[in-house]
């Protein structure tokens, strides 16, 4: 479960204040808002990468508000993926396991599982420079899921992909989430993504967060303003 309660975060001159939302264990929550509204800042606060000025963050029943990122047990896929250029795909998948000192046999087994789950066979010895957009995306996802985090945070994970690849990724994200049961928070500005993926939908608008049923997106599409923002997806 992800519980964010009255969260205030400041990032330079930019701040979000008093945000609250809850996503239950095993849910796929989508947080939707325009570019520059503070979605990334919010996600970084949940990861522990931005200091929190007020409010609480609880992940799977544990208060993590002031814990360092390493102790929060979150898998994080940033918008630019931030793959490590000096490492192969295999090293990416094993990175968190190596840091956590898993025994090598267990780690190798886990890497095999992820390779299977994400369809990365044949890519294991490549470096990020040699991967397509969709492949890089799957590697970033595998790296984040390797240590079996309870919570997965995705920041605009599909924005850099072409339309066909993106459609394929919807299915993959869904099936990965079903198989692992990881509670997911997916941030996006795309209505199409929200419509295809969300169990729960939160809309971030003018500094406030409100929950909205995913089905409402269909109707809002008719709204002229909505159609315009969707065009930027």
């Amino acid at each position: 479960m992800i519980v964010v309660d009255g969260l205030s975060v400041q990032s330079g001159a930019f701040k979000v204040e008093g945000l609250s939302f809850t996503a239950n264990t095993g849910e796929y929550a989508v947080l939707m808002g325009r570019t520059g509204c503070g979605k990334t800042t919010l996600l970084e606060a949940v990861c522990g990468l931005k200091p929190v000025r007020g409010g609480r963050i609880r992940l799977l029943g544990r208060d993590v508000t002031h814990l360092p990122p390493a102790d929060r047990g979150v898998g994080y896929v940033p918008q630019d993926l931030a793959l490590f250029p000096t490492m192969t795909v295999r090293e990416h998948l094993g990175f968190a396991l190596d840091v956590r000192r898993w025994n090598p046999a267990e780690a190798a087994k886990r890497v095999d599982e992820l390779t299977e789950l994400l369809g990365l066979g044949g890519l294991l010895d490549r470096r990020p420079q040699g991967l397509s957009g969709g492949e890089a995306q799957r590697v970033a996802l595998g790296r984040a899921l390797a240590f079996r985090p309870g919570v997965l945070l995705l920041d605009e994970p599909l924005s850099a992909l072409d339309e066909d690849t993106r459609a394929g990724m919807y299915g993959l994200l869904r099936s990965v989430q079903r198989q692992t049961g990881v509670t997911t928070l997916h941030v996006t500005h795309s209505r199409a993504e929200a419509r295809s993926l969300a169990d729960r939908l939160f809309v971030f608008d003018k500094g406030t967060l409100r929950e909205s049923p995913p089905s409402s997106l269909q109707d809002e599409l008719l709204d002229a303003r909505g159609a315009r923002t969707d065009g930027s997806a």
């Binding site: 970084e44 990861c47 522990g48 990468l49 360092p68 990122p69 390493a70 929060r72 979150v74 898998g75 994080y76 940033p78 630019d80 931030a82 793959l83 490590f84 990175f95 968190a96 840091v99 956590r100 790296r143 984040a144 390797a146 240590f147």
Partner: peptide
């Protein structure tokens, strides 16, 4: 070098 990579590494368990 993008600081993003260090940030990701920290979420993956690194100090």
């Amino acid at each position: 070098i993008s600081p993003r990579r260090e940030q990701v590494a920290r979420t993956l368990g690194c100090t």
